[in-house]
Design a protein around this nucleic acid. Sequence first.
DNA 1: TCTGGGGTCCTAGGACCC
DNA 2: TCTGGGGTCCTAGGACCC
Length: 430
Amino acid sequence: MKKVFALVDCNNFYVSCERLFRPALNGQPVVVLSNNDGCVISRSNEAKAMGIPMGEPYFKLRSFALRRNVHIFSSNYALYGDLSARVMDVLHRMEAELEVYSIDEAFLSLPGGDSWNRLDYGAELRERIRKEVGIPVSIGIGPTKTLAKIAARVAKKEVPAGSGSQGVFELACEGQTDAVLEQTDVQDIWGIGSRFTARLNRQGIYNGLALKKADADWVRKYLTVVGARVVFELNGISCLPLEKAPTSKKSIVTSRSFGQPVTAISDLREAVITFASRAAVKLREQQLEAGALHLFLATSRFGEPSNVYSNGQTMSLADPTSSTPALIATALHCLQGIYKSGYRYQKAGVLLTGLVPQGHRQQSLFFLETAENKPLMSALDQINSRWGADTIRYGVTGAGKSWEMRQSYKSPAYTTNWQELPVVKASFDK
DNA sequence: TCTGGGGTCCTAGGACCC
DNA sequence: TCTGGGGTCCTAGGACCC
């Protein structure tokens, strides 16, 4: 039996997470900001209706938001990650063929054919997630992942009468698919970003139906195999399989914009040490070791021309490692190499590459096990996991934190931190 | 004053080898 | 003065995603 794809997509996910603990915000305009309270990354329908664009910098929005009573949140990834896991858990229990695609999306593989009603099944999934977790989702169904994505967009907006229940939509036949594709701008299709959109528009291709019928050789040449796959998928030929097993990471990044510009190398050192420590923890969580470390720093992209500098340096590690002190030392060495005084730095980060599974490495001739601090790292991780992140950390990460990011509107970690559990009276707040 | 962070894949071009 | 061709591997940069 031929399979079809379903995409389960959480509606306005971060906003929905915040509303779960502040039900009075239902029906109100709400937005969630990126790290550093930089720009808008999630909007309630009411905020969308007000014309607040995705990605809008918060400083441009502030006075409008105040005037129009838009509720603002800093992002709270502990909360979103936990609720995401609960949604995925419901899906896991309902459906074996599952790919967790992102924090708020999952693909399912469902039996095709006319013998059963996928719309009813989708409605049941939706209801289960609403009841057990409280997050609203939309579900799109189609013969390929790309078409399932497009179906989910339709489900999220408005389902044409008679072709799906609330929040669930299926692209079942060619005529219906073409009608929807004609109404879909190319930039709204999965895999078509701003550059590809510009190239397509120059060719007179503006909607999904035109892209579906585009000349294959032209697409292959100017949009690479990536674009060619999109065209196949629009034609109902599946090129993107369901990836059930999560693949092992190929790189790990820890980077931040600073809450305020940083000039002193001493402050940069603190930041870099913090990033390297955090990256080391992520590495050990994944049971990986890094073969190389890349440090980068940059001034603001929007600042005055006299303050433009960005640079990075990569160093390979003699032996792959996940040891915090080894990674800190390497990062600091890179910093020494690229730091230039006189600039106001806005961002820095540590990128780990050449990742290999723990213990599967090739050891160099001069490898010293004692340099690894294995038992120490494992003790540190256990204590921090039991008592909270940063219970124990390297003293050199500093206490001043002049560079720390802004988070002026952060909600409590309701579900992952006992200290931030709402007290009983708060749960009766209106 | 204030514009995110963390990923993947693809391609072109250089280094290097025989 | 003339100065191959084909293959692989690596990396930087571009493009995309959420």
